[in-house]
Design a protein around this nucleic acid. Structure first.
Lengths: 120, 120
DNA sequence: GGTTTTGTACGATTTCCATCGTAGTACGGC
DNA sequence: GCCGTACTACGATGGAAATCGTACAAAACC
């Protein structure tokens, strides 16, 4: 019956804001950092849970932890421990209900800009 | 032939980023401040040029100047001197071309949140 | 010219934030 | 029990940013 070889969630639990605690300003601030925007784009593209380690970010591990925490505390992502790994997942549906079109708009804009800057 | 009683633009000119210099991160950062988000919402609602003075913001005049400068330098608004007043205008069309749906998404989200928070 | 209106420039302050390194913890596997 | 992996916690640091007050500037109007 095992659907995946991924380990089950461990006992460690992380604090997430409830949907009605999410604030637009905090979401926008979270997305205004290049590293974090990159993380979110990747999560949206791949569409599932990703371990922090698969993001090859040009910063130290502690900085990486910091960015993921900002994203989680602002309500953009959900995080869960699986074994030694910590998986991240976009809270896309909740954000869509809360701020319709916002996340899509930002993601589209991010890709737009990436292409635009690549062609320069 | 006078279309308005508004004074003509004065000689003083302000620096604006060119469209292809506008960066998504800077726009998002500009919009992630409550004061600035408020300014942008008002500009979008009223839909034209507004003098800085019509925004009754709970901050000092110098802070106000600061916020308008951040918005202008990030490419969100355009500013022009008319007499002693300095008018601000959303760069809605340019932003729409650059980041389709982004501004609308943010504005909708802002209004959504305003209503949601008012009902609590 | 003098006054009022509107906003700027500058410096100070204080807080936030992105970054790092080091030491530590939780878990899985051996 | 021990080791490796993956991430955290904590403290430090340097830089950005939000805020303010005071002094100034540009334009309109009398």
């Amino acid at each position: 019956m095992a659907t995946q070889q991924a380990p089950a969630p461990s006992g460690r639990v992380l604090d997430h804001p409830d949907v009605d605690e999410i604030r637009l300003e905090h979401v926008l601030h979270a997305l205004s950092d290049p590293m974090r925007l990159r993380i979110v784009c990747r999560l949206a593209t791949d569409g599932g849970e990703l371990a922090c380690s698969v993001f090859d970010l040009p910063v130290s591990k502690s900085t990486c932890t910091h960015h993921f925490r900002v994203l989680r505390e602002s309500g953009v992502i959900q995080q869960i421990y699986r074994g030694t790994a910590k998986m991240s997942l976009l809270r896309a549906e909740e954000l869509e209900r809360l701020f319709p079109g916002l996340l899509d708009g930002v993601l589209t804009a991010a890709r737009h800009q990436e292409q635009r800057l690549a062609a320069s």
